[in-house]
């Protein structure tokens, strides 16, 4: 059970609580270690605090209890975190190039200097030729790709994705699932992925953490040991179905859990 990757994790959440100003306890005693090069999914029903946990890891807000530790201090620079929101969250007045350039621009990297990285990030998500397009000229899936390219442009070690494909149609979602998985495999990243889809989580993850609501807490953990690369064959295999059944049951139990 002991995962060597977790011996020296990238980031560790230690009994993290988050209580909002409204008094709502969003997270209670969250213990979670995220290992190098994991594809970790936080799975749970709405209101279980999975997005809150992701935002805390990103440094958007502070926990009201417990600690978030970065054992390797070098890993915890702003450059090393990429964030993909549920919505594409693009600047409508800026071209694809300028949207992807944003994180570098904010770090005061000159346009000329950044050009190669920006172009590479755009190519990585398959949007060559669209650098000068405006977001409104793109489809929903393409906008999401721009959003992913923007998160990649700083070459982060940790990519945080908050239900990035929830609003997309299934065909686009499958395609982007494959692309993100390929990118994750080819780069040396760690991904923390938030979703409420059992099928998506099993397809992508190396580990799934199931969370229960009110207050948000971890109730189960599953490793998905199926080998990568995973493809359509995996999606229709018995092994995949077995995993889905196990995770579904786990999620159903989580939803029945009484408030702690």
């Amino acid at each position: 059970m002991a995962d060597p990757r977790l011996a020296r994790p990238l980031v560790r959440l230690d009994k993290v609580d988050k209580r909002f100003a409204s008094g709502v306890l969003a997270l209670a005693g969250l213990d979670l270690a995220i290992g190098q090069h994991e594809f970790l999914t936080l799975l749970g029903p709405s209101g279980c605090g999975k997005s809150t946990a992701l935002r805390l890891i990103a440094g958007l807000g502070d926990p009201t209890g417990g600690r978030i530790e970065w054992p390797d201090p070098e890993a915890h620079t702003r450059r090393d975190i990429g964030f993909v929101f549920q919505e594409p969250t693009l600047m409508p007045w800026a071209t694809v190039f300028d949207n992807v350039y944003l994180p570098l621009r904010l770090q005061r990297v000159g346009r000329k200097q950044a050009e190669r990285d920006v172009t590479a990030a755009i190519a990585m998500v398959g949007l060559e030729g669209f650098a000068r397009a405006y977001p409104r000229e793109l489809s929903g899936g393409m906008k999401m790709r721009v959003s992913i390219a923007r998160a990649l442009v700083t070459r982060p070690r940790l990519l945080l994705m908050d239900e990035p494909f929830a609003a997309l149609d299934e065909i686009t979602r499958f395609k982007l699932n494959n692309d993100v998985m390929e990118l994750w495999r080819s780069q040396s990243w760690t991904v923390v992925f938030v979703t409420h889809s059992v099928f998506e989580s099993v397809y992508l993850s190396s580990r799934i953490v199931v969370m229960a609501p009110r207050p948000g807490r971890i109730v189960a953990e599953h490793r998905i040991d199926a080998a990568y690369p995973r493809d359509e064959e995996f999606r229709t295999s018995t092994v995949y179905n077995e995993y889905c059944r196990t995770i579904s049951r786990s999620l159903a139990r989580a939803m029945q859990e009484q408030p702690a």
């Binding site: 990103a58 702003r78 929101f85 904010l106």
Partner: peptide
Amino acid sequence: NLFQLYGA
């Protein structure tokens, strides 16, 4: 939030 994340 994104701007905040990148320390703008």
